[in-house]
Every structure is written in structure tokens, then in C-alpha cells.
Nucleic acid binder design. Structure first.
Lengths: 180, 180
DNA sequence: TCGCGATATGTAAGTTTCGACATAATCACT
DNA sequence: AGTGATTATGTCGAAACTTACATATCGCGA
């Protein structure tokens, strides 16, 4: 099975969700870890169901079609568990910003400065969004290791560290771009 | 044009390369920013040439076919420059590790510890590889802003910061996983 | 000298992901 | 009363990417 399937299972492990709710969750904050459009989610849920990893029940339909609420099955939870424990491939890490920075010597200092300042702004904004989220956890020291909240908090911590590092790097670079 | 095309143009902007050399460069260190298999590179070079952004000359063939060396054209350099200056979409950031961490509450502390320790090891190793690369730059303070070397060094700095942050986060998490 | 790996370039088939299209109810605002 | 955003679920074709297949030469160690 592919990663998207496990991303969906990971969401359903915490609570039953409709396809629409899954695709909303894949935007933020799960979207900072893995993203998918709704056009991927709905087929994925069907194939997970065919594999016996999730099941659905039809509820009242607010849109043009019926609303289907999905639950994870015991088999699905086991699949998720063995995936977490399975060997992890080295991350692919595609960064369009870094690719552009590699070509920075071709453009003027002004253009370079604009690029890095825009990137810095976005990192500051996301860092602020993370800070808001962090506040909802209360005292993180009280979270039990085997709670879903602690797992979420751990990923949030990584996100915060990542944004802080990125902002610091932008400042480092901006200090080295000559002012026109 | 898509990002892969600009990644290739970025490499050719510094020096003429064969398709094979481009695919080697896309492994490391460019691979930490963007990756592609050779089966993507060769068709991409052809389509870049059709668009007039690169040109090739046939040289001696060591393999079963002719060796083609590619140069970037003036048009290609301009395309690369405007791409660097164009508005940047927010990064997609897919992290399978974070996805697994989000499901960490489902597995035993022992399994969790193994996952994070393995991840930590890989970050330490890559950090060491970066340190070796950094040493090849000599005194970074001497690099001119408009040199390809400075651009490379800037991305390397970001990579180093990223790995350091990741190792720190792994240690933070490991300290919070109960010992079995 | 025999096999193995690296060099070197490509094609073909399959999978995954994206972007656009499609539909319709409900709710808030004007 | 009408307009538009949000909720809600899906299909379809295209683009991007991966994996496997295909081929041939050179250098190196066993």
C-alpha cells in the first residue's frame, strides 16, 4: 500500500470521518506533513474499504450525494501499526526555494532580496499559526506518551523548530545580499 | 514549464553537462533539493532543446550510443532568471516520518524508540556529509554574492541547519519516550 | 579471462498526483 | 429574492514520476 493510504488511516485511527473531513484535515495541520486533493481521497477511501482496512455507514446527505462516514477496522489499525514500525526510506525532500537559491547568482541582489524576504514572511506566518495551535495543547508536560494528542504535539514541535530554523537561515542570507 | 526543467537549467547554467552527468548531479547534493531518475532527465533535455532553452553537441560515444553534451542558451538563462523571480507557491513538504510520528501513540515505546533512533542516525549521517562538503568551500566569507559557489554554499547552510534542528528534535522526543 | 560494476543513453509500461469539470443543498449577506 | 460561499461527493483526462527493460563499452579485481 502507498503512503496516502496510511495518512488516511492515521486520521481515521483517532476518530471516524467523512471523505470531506479527511480532505479538510489533509490541508492543515496534516497538510504540513502530507497533502492530497479530494480527488485522491475519495478513490483512496474506496480502495481502503475494498482491502478491509476501513468501513463506512451512510448518513444524511447534505450535498448532492449521500454522506459516508468511515471507521478504521481492526485490520486497518494493525496495518497502520506495522507501517509505523517498518523500515523508513530516506526522505525525498523537494524544495523549490532551495532550487531557486542555487540559481541566485544569476539574478540581481534586489530580485534575490525579494525572493528571500517573501520566503521569510511565509515562514514567520506559519510559525505564528503553529504558536496558536500549540496554545490549544495546554501544558504539554501532562500529555501521556500513548495519547494521540502527544503524537500531534510532537509533530507540531518539529514544525516549530523547522520554521524557526528557516527564519534564521533567511536572516543569515539577507545579511549577505548586498543592498542596491 | 515544470520545476524539473528549471532544476536541469540551473545545473547547465554553471557548466555544460551530458545527460548522464545531470542525472548524477540530481543524486547528491542537488538530490537533497530535487530528485529525478535518468528516465526523466533524457526526455526533459529533449523538450528543453525543443523549446530552445538548451542545445547539444555530439561527442565520442563510450556507451552504446553517442554522448551528447548540453549547453544552456541565452533564452534558457533568461527563462531561469525569470523563474527565480516569479512568485513562489508555499512548499508541499511531504514527510513520511512526521506522518508516522502522528501515529506513534498506536505502537509500543520500544517500536517508537527504534523509529526515532533510526531517523536520528540518518540525520547525523547527512549532517556529517554536509560538513565534508562545507570544508571544500574554504573560507565562505570570501565568496562573492554573484558566484555560483556562494549560491551552493547558501543551500548547504540551510541543509546543515535543517539537520541540526532534526537531530535536536529527535533527542527531545527520545527523552519523552518511556523506556521499556 | 571472466564476471562485475560503472559508464552511458534511451524506451515502455505502470502508478501517483493534479487540475478541471460536474452537481446540488444550505446558509449568510444584500 | 438573488448572489455567492461553503458543504459535500465524485469523475475524467493530463501531467509527473517510478520501475523495469534494453544495450554496449571500459576498467578492475579474482
Amino acid at each position: 500500500m502507498r503512503t496516502l493510504g496510511y495518512a488516511v488511516l492515521g486520521l481515521l485511527a483517532a476518530e471516524p470521518l467523512t471523505g470531506y473531513q479527511v480532505s479538510r484535515r489533509m490541508a492543515r495541520p496534516i497538510g504540513y506533513l502530507w497533502t492530497a486533493r479530494h480527488s485522491q481521497i475519495y478513490p483512496e477511501l474506496r480502495s481502503l474499504e475494498q482491502a478491509g482496512l476501513v468501513r463506512h455507514r451512510v448518513e444524511d446527505g447534505r450535498g448532492p450525494r449521500d454522506t459516508k462516514r468511515y471507521w478504521i477496522t481492526g485490520k486497518g489499525k494493525n496495518a497502520l501499526r506495522s507501517w509505523v514500525a517498518s523500515p523508513l526510506e530516506p526522505p525525498e525532500s523537494k524544495s523549490e526555494l532551495m532550487l531557486r537559491v542555487r540559481a541566485l547568482w544569476l539574478v540581481s541582489p534586489t530580485v534575490a532580496r525579494e525572493l528571500i524576504e517573501a520566503a521569510r514572511d511565509r515562514h514567520v506566518q506559519r510559525r505564528a499559526a503553529y504558536a496558536v495551535e500549540e496554545a490549544t495543547f495546554g501544558d504539554p508536560g501532562l500529555l501521556a506518551f500513548d495519547s494521540a494528542a502527544f503524537s500531534s504535539y510532537a509533530t507540531l514541535r518539529c514544525g516549530i523548530g523547522h520554521e524557526d530554523q528557516a527564519v534564521g537561515w533567511c536572516d543569515w542570507l539577507l545579511a549577505r545580499i548586498p543592498r542596491g
